[in-house]
Design a protein around this nucleic acid. Sequence first.
DNA 1: TTGAAAGCGCTAACAC
DNA 2: GTGTTAGCGCTTTCAA
Lengths: 334, 334
Amino acid sequence: MAKKVTIATVAKYAGVSRQTVSNVLNTPEVVREETRRKVYEAVEALGYRVSQAARQMRTGRSRLIATRIESTGDGINGSVLDRFLHALTESAARSGYRVLLYTAADDDAEIATYEDLLGTYKPDAFVLASTHHRDTRTTWLTERRLPFVTFGRPWDAPDRHLWVDVDGASGTEDATRHLLEAGHERIGFLGWPAGSGVGDDRRQGWLRAMAAAGQDTTGLDHACPDRVAEAEAVVGELLGRDPAPTALVCASDSLALGALQASRALGRPLAVTGFDDTPVARAIGLTSVSQPLEEAAARCVRLLTRLLDGEAEAEESVLLRPSLVVRDTTYPPT
Amino acid sequence: MAKKVTIATVAKYAGVSRQTVSNVLNTPEVVREETRRKVYEAVEALGYRVSQAARQMRTGRSRLIATRIESTGDGINGSVLDRFLHALTESAARSGYRVLLYTAADDDAEIATYEDLLGTYKPDAFVLASTHHRDTRTTWLTERRLPFVTFGRPWDAPDRHLWVDVDGASGTEDATRHLLEAGHERIGFLGWPAGSGVGDDRRQGWLRAMAAAGQDTTGLDHACPDRVAEAEAVVGELLGRDPAPTALVCASDSLALGALQASRALGRPLAVTGFDDTPVARAIGLTSVSQPLEEAAARCVRLLTRLLDGEAEAEESVLLRPSLVVRDTTYPPT
DNA sequence: TTGAAAGCGCTAACAC
DNA sequence: GTGTTAGCGCTTTCAA
């Protein structure tokens, strides 16, 4: 292992004092051009890197962003958070931060983890995903004035915290409009049971588009848990009705996959759209709403760095527009 | 923000010296029972947590394990690494370590990241996934005597580093045997082009099982890139031949999904097995080989902690057996 | 067993 | 513009 190269090594090599090196690194504008160059050369030649631990002891900042990695759950939709996490890691690195991972079974466990982390690794900020009604995590963090951003709106109140989210309603609205343009009229919605922020939001988009087109939606709004098998059952029953919907806007790719399987099993054509543009959608050629996850992650990091640099107040939460990825399995109306 | 509680606060509260507190925390057996209890109480009451930064300055150990988060790629198989990462985070936490994330486009970029990370955050160890032929990362780390484990065998040589892996051949062997027992004889294999360690390993299992059953495999070994669409095309062509295979062991769920779609599109029954038991397999009822990822992650952490505690030499790499998850879509032979 | 002293590498204050 | 001093919180000597 190469011997340690500290700020003192660099100073000696460059023929300046330790402090000057520190200055060059942290407030370069305060050092004379030539000195600065000498120091940079020394840093380069020696392969010097600031020790985070030492820096943290002085500044109290760890340049660490902590976030939770979720258990994949259904797994089809889970991949969305994984892609977000990947993008977050990349964005954070670009801003000089690293992502520290933790797991937690529920909100309480997560809060306990905050306490532990804050005492030990002292992350500068948290990124929370999967916000939900009555989210205790955000209130806990807010009360302690800890910097954080959520990927997902606060669904309860016009909360006093920063967030980044994707406009789900706009996504399902696009999907519905796409089906309307293809000539469909009886377009159903398959979502999750009412009460979830995300799910209800996606339902709104469908309602909006249908209303705009002057279509009646009675008897077309359906819900079931986010599992393929259940969706298949529900849709199977649906297709037996008269009149049956000719198209279905789904709140997730899992539901959409179930719907598609039901329609195939019964040999009854059904146009289906999903949500999240997961690998499965790509694989089976399903039209789906795609979230701009890279953009979302980048915005989270940006919000956070501003917040940490004290330029906070000016910043505002962000609502991004998703896009519809059209694939050709969507059957024409019969 | 609660005021800082340091080791000194605890010492005062417990009525002992600072050093005693440190002893209780690091080498409890050296402190008298009663004193120890007092200190623990103080720690509890004050909610004290050791500062990692300070500890690291003294000990040089960060209690950080660094690992790469990959871009989801195909996404169907990508979920395997995500589940592994989740499990790794959990296992690491149980051993008092946290997982630090980074991204890298290729081996060289990854090595550059090692240098950066080692200079700044000083992770105690690395976990590398997706090992491949001519892996420059492992040699780089080995040369510098940096602690690491790979999830995936070193495919080139009987390398001098620790690894944990899952026996892919055993998995496909089980799958093949399962199909044989169901009465199939012309069982094909659909894998990746020769040259990938993982892919070739999985092919071996199929060969082994077929040989054991006295089945001829000529003309039954197929390969294509790991994408659903390509698999669908390949299998579509295959089913047109005479005689066509009645069953297909696939090296991944992506390939299996493609195969299934081809068989459905043509209305030609085909029994298919996949690999990795991804969410998609679960969703569409595909029989698939499941990797024990939690176990694999736990073994990685265990190997690493031993290594870091100096009990290294005794440790050995681990080859785990996967299990076959049988689902009922597997058609009977015709 | 417990306590005192030193120092890990860095940066914020202040002096030069 | 540059150098000196101090100390962040901890653990590792060494002495009591």
